[in-house]
């Protein structure tokens, strides 16, 4: 089974996994699950959805790591998967109307009642609301309202300290495009929050 004492590189962990040491995959999970979560959280703005995406990311990697050729860094590969799954989830949430507004005047069908219950469940829990101050809550709300292309770049920069080059590579964009998107996202936040 896996040893726990030495600090292995990602490439060494992957090599050992390919040699049959399945349990060593847990080291990659310990190292990067939080990052996958943060990327997803930045895109989705929901803790539950972010955790679901983080789990999905690593389940997929767990299944396909044996076929990972190492053409790019493991982290770049993981970021791409996380971003794509988070985008898919975001589109899915949008298409099923998770964020739609329901008029108070309307008579509610059973489906709509369920949708309302779900909307209520998706609000931050009281504990979480207490944990974040008003400014942080407003920042997250306004980030959620940014155009997706701006939001993704800003989130990758902010929550994971990714370099501009890494973000450009992960999102398949030019470096200048990423710099511009991040700057525009920040300017939008400044305007909306009056900072």
């Amino acid at each position: 089974m896996s040893d726990t004492g030495t600090k292995l590189s990602d490439a060494e962990i992957i090599a050992r996994f390919k040699d049959g040491d399945v349990a060593i995959f847990q080291k990659l999970v310990d190292r990067y699950a939080g990052r996958a979560y943060q990327i997803a959280y930045g895109v989705l703005g929901s803790r539950e959805d972010a955790e679901e995406v983080a789990q999905d990311v690593f389940v997929r990697i767990f299944r396909s790591l044996g076929r990972f050729r190492g053409d790019s860094e493991f982290t770049t590969w993981m970021y791409r998967i996380a971003m794509n799954l988070a985008r898919n989830k975001y589109r899915w949430n949008k298409s099923r109307g998770a964020r739609r507004e329901i008029s108070l005047q309307e008579t509610l069908s059973d489906d709509e009642t369920r949708a309302l219950i779900q909307l209520a469940e998706e609000r931050p829990s009281p504990d979480l609301a207490n944990e974040l101050n008003e400014f942080e809550t407003n920042v997250m709300k306004e980030i959620d309202n940014l155009p997706p292309l701006y939001r993704e770049a800003l989130v990758m920069r902010n929550i994971d300290e990714m370099s501009y080059e890494q973000i450009a590579h992960a999102l398949g964009c030019k470096l200048g495009t990423i710099k511009s998107r991040i700057a525009r996202a920040r300017e939008e936040l400044r305007k909306r929050l009056g900072v």
Binding site: V29, Y37, Q38
Partner: peptide, 23 residues
């Protein structure tokens, strides 16, 4: 903004355990 986002996006402490269990 950066500080606010980092704080808001902190993952749960037991996330890695749950992700490993999902795997």
């Amino acid at each position: 903004f950066d500080a606010a986002v980092r704080r808001a996006a902190r993952p749960p402490a037991d996330l890695a355990d749950r992700v490993w269990a999902a795997c």
